[in-house]
Amino acid sequence: MAEPILTVENLSKHFGGLRAVNDASFTVEAGRITALIGPNGAGKTTVFALITGFLKPSSGRIAYNGEAITGIPAHLLARRGIARTFQIVQPFAGLTVLQNIAVGSHLHIPGRAAALAAAEEVAALVGLTPMLHQPASTLTVAGRKRLELARALATAPKLLLLDEVLAGLNPSEIRDMIPIIRAIAARGVTILMIEHVMQAVMSLADQIFVLVEGHVIAQGTPQTVAADPKVIEAYLGAGAAARLAGGAHAG
C-alpha cells in the first residue's frame, strides 16, 4: 500500500470539558475518495477544522505526505495543497461568481488576467459558467455549494476536504453533483468528504471512517461499514443491530 497522503493519529480537541474529538485516528489514501460519516455532533467538522489549520488540536498528530502539519495555520496549508469547503457556505457575497473563484486561483497565479482565465475553466468544470458574472449573493443553495467547490478547486489542491457539499440539495441536484465530485477525483485530487447523504457516500466513497463521539468506531468499504453492527447501533441506538438482524430473520 502506498504512503497515505493524510495520516491522523490520536487526534483530540477539547472545548472546556467537551471532548469534541477524542483520540481519533484514520488515514486517507492518495487518489481515492474517503468519507467521514457519523451522527450529528460526532465531531466531523471539528476534525476538518483541525486538519485544515482553523483550529489547533489539544493533542495528537496530523501528517500530510509524511510531514507533520499539526498546528500550521490555514493559509500555509492551502499553499501546500490542502483545500476545504465549508458546511455553512461562505461566499464572498459582494463579488461575482468569477471573482469569487479567482481568489482561489490567485493562490498560484499572480496575474489578474491569468487568474480570471483559470477561474473560468474551474467554473466550467462545476457547471457555473452561466452564472459567472452574477453576484454570489444571488445564487441558489445548489449554486453556492458549487461555488464553494469551485473556489477550493481553483487553488489546485492535492487534498480536498468537502464538508457536506450535498446537504440541503434536492435529489435531482444531488444527482447533478455526484458526477462533478467524481470528475474532480478523476483528475487526481484526493478527496476526504463529510457527508450525510448515504446514497452518495455509498456510490462515491472507496473508504469510509465512522466517527462517533469524537472517536473512530469503524472503517472499511461502504459495504462493510453498512453491515457493521457498531455503526447501526451508533445511528439507531443500542440493540438496533440485533433487532434488525432478528427482523430480517423473521421476515
Binding site: A78, F92, G94, L95, V103, L107, R112, A115, A152, A154
Partner: peptide, 24 residues
C-alpha cells in the same frame, strides 16, 4: 486590478473563506 486587491476584498467579504483559499 491586482492579486493583492483581490485578496484584500476577499478579506473584507469573509476572512475565514479567504484563509481557506491561502490568503494570509
Amino acid at each position: 486590478q491586482s492579486r493583492f486587491g483581490a485578496w484584500l476584498v476577499a478579506v473584507r467579504e469573509n476572512q475565514d473563506a479567504a484563509r481557506a483559499l491561502g490568503v494570509d
